[in-house]
């Protein structure tokens, strides 16, 4: 990092703040305000339809009490169940994305050429192509007569109706496909910074592939690994795209947090209840973010 102690010689504080003013305005309006509003509304019974739309009432912690009603919260379509489903979804996606991304980055470490370009392009396209178009190709991919089953049939495997028989596995598969590029690019950039001489030394010492990875590469990419883990966790926690595949069903089996919140707020129009869920989600996210910052600080201290 460049030194910071002589900053003010180039920009006066006044010009700097002027340049920052639009940034602060956007952050205030579109990040801070929604945050404060969601917290405030979570204590009311505000709705979009019905009497509470015209005249919302302060109801204290009732919304939260209802979320954590332990008699019913594990039923299908309820908050607790959604939380559990989200945890499954996040952990499975996380393992899939980070390992696959790391695997691809390692496989093509210090390689160049057509093969690498092709794989990187495919994986990256999966990440950047628009979700609405992707939803269609995946609906066809997972169709009982779709590409996946055709491929499975060709090698003699069963042909399930994916979205009905294994909806959670389907959206995890989808999300891993969609998100691996981030880990792959991150790790391959990190591995690119490893000096070849380290690896040559390891070769000279007769290290095998696993030792080479564990003793030379892994320490070099530890920071990126932490970054990938936490950012992927946060993003996956809030991802809404599976809605386009399953609408949260069948029978609420893919009712992950973002879909659950959307349903409460924009299908039942229960803004108060939806905001209460959002507050809980934010708290969870902040804890995760705290872990991230903590890990980062420790990583920097260690260097």
């Amino acid at each position: 990092m460049p030194s910071t102690h002589q900053d003010s010689t180039i920009l006066t504080r006044r010009t700097g703040l002027t340049l920052l003013a639009p940034t602060f305005a956007f952050i205030g309006l579109f990040l801070l305000f929604p945050f404060v509003w969601v917290v405030a509304i979570s204590f009311t019974d505000r709705t979009l339809l019905g009497a509470a739309a015209a005249d919302p009432q302060f109801i204290g912690l009732d919304n939260f009490r209802q979320l954590f009603d332990f008699d019913s919260w594990m039923r299908s379509g309820e908050f607790g169940r959604s939380l559990v489903l989200t945890v499954y979804f996040v952990i499975a996606s996380l393992i899939g994305q980070v390992f696959l991304g790391l695997g691809i980055a390692l496989a093509f470490h210090r390689r160049k050429g057509f093969l690498r370009e092709t794989i990187f392009t495919l994986v990256t396209l999966a990440w950047i192509l628009p979700e609405a178009a992707i939803a269609f190709t995946w609906t066809s991919f997972l169709d009982p007569n779709g590409t996946l089953n055709t491929a499975l049939g060709a090698v003699g495997l069963t042909r399930p109706d994916w979205l009905l028989d294994a909806p959670m596995a389907s959206i995890v598969m989808f999300n891993v496909w969609r998100g691996t590029a981030f880990s792959m690019l991150l790790f391959s950039a990190a591995l690119g910074n490893v000096r070849p001489s380290y690896l040559e030394t390891a070769d000279v010492l007769g290290a095998n592939a696993w030792q080479r990875f564990r003793d030379v590469l892994l320490p070099m990419i530890k920071a990126q690994l932490a970054t990938a883990l936490i950012l992927v966790t946060l993003w996956t926690f809030n991802v809404f795209t599976p809605f386009l595949l399953t609408q949260g069903g069948p029978a609420f089996q893919t009712d992950i947090m973002a879909i659950h919140t959307y349903r409460i707020a924009f299908r039942y129009f229960e803004f108060g209840q939806g905001s209460a869920i959002a507050v809980i989600v934010m708290l969870i996210n902040f804890v995760l973010a705290g872990v991230y910052l903590f890990a980062l600080k420790r990583g920097e201290g260690a260097r």
């Binding site: 709705t47 979009l48 339809l49 019905g50 009497a51 739309a53 015209a54």
Partner: peptide, 9 residues
């Protein structure tokens, strides 16, 4: 109807 009426819409 009832929901929309009560919301004043």
């Amino acid at each position: 109807t009832p929901d929309f009426v009560e919301a004043g819409y």
